[in-house]
């Protein structure tokens, strides 16, 4: 459950991007939690999130109503929503504090402002999941496994689109690692493209591996 982590962008863009997750802990406090969650849903909706999501029904942005989300609550209900302003996100935390439902709450957003808010509201943060960022890759670069295949042609003639598409075909079982290698390595006419290594790299895409 780290899908709200690793957001990328400048501080300017991230300063108003908060993701709120309210979660019942299965086997601990999920029984009888639907009523509290229902209240939280109403409270969050009133504050005005950019979106409320639900794995069961879909998101409000895609046209799902609040009632549909509510009726879609499972035995272990969850609320996932995003706020486009710090003020709204912190207002939601304040409201959750008042409702005191005992559900777990996480807020993903800029750490400095979040910690200051906690201090202001008298909340002692419990634990934290910190993104350590993506290492060694630059914004314009594709994934490491694509780079591994790309950089064997130092002239850059084996492009990312072809590699990504070919890897996908191997993943889908439409191409064998060997055929995938034969498909992409002719592009590097120098012959320094190590076909043996390429095949091994493609083998990592085979579904069973």
């Amino acid at each position: 459950m780290t899908h709200s982590l690793h957001r990328r962008g400048t501080d300017e863009y991230l300063k108003n991007d908060f993701t709120l997750l309210v979660t019942a802990a299965s086997g601990v406090n999920h029984i009888g939690s639907r009523e509290g969650m229902s209240k939280i849903l109403d409270a969050v909706w009133e504050i005005g999130p950019t979106n409320i999501g639900s794995n069961e029904t879909g998101t409000t942005l895609s046209g799902v109503t609040l009632e549909q989300i509510r009726s879609g609550f499972t035995k272990v209900p969850r609320i996932r929503c995003n706020f486009g302003s710090k003020g709204k996100a912190f207002a939601a935390i304040k409201k959750l504090q008042e409702l005191d439902t005992g559900m777990s709450v996480t807020l993903s957003g800029p750490i400095e402002a979040t910690l200051a808010m906690c201090k202001e509201y008298g909340i002692k943060p419990h634990s934290i999941n910190l993104s350590l960022d993506v290492w060694g890759k630059k914004d314009k670069l594709p994934a490491e496994e694509v780079l591994e295949l790309m950089t064997m042609c130092g002239h850059g003639l084996v492009g990312r689109t072809l590699i990504e598409e070919t890897m996908e075909k191997v993943r889908q079982g439409k191409l064998s690692p060997q055929k995938a290698t034969v498909k992409i390595s002719p592009l590097c006419i120098c012959g320094i493209y190590n076909t043996d290594r390429a095949e091994k790299l493609f083998e990592k895409c085979v579904p069973s591996k």
Partner: peptide, 8 residues
């Protein structure tokens, strides 16, 4: 030809 272009 689309996927072959290294520059897209």
């Amino acid at each position: 030809c689309l996927p072959y272009c290294p520059m897209g």
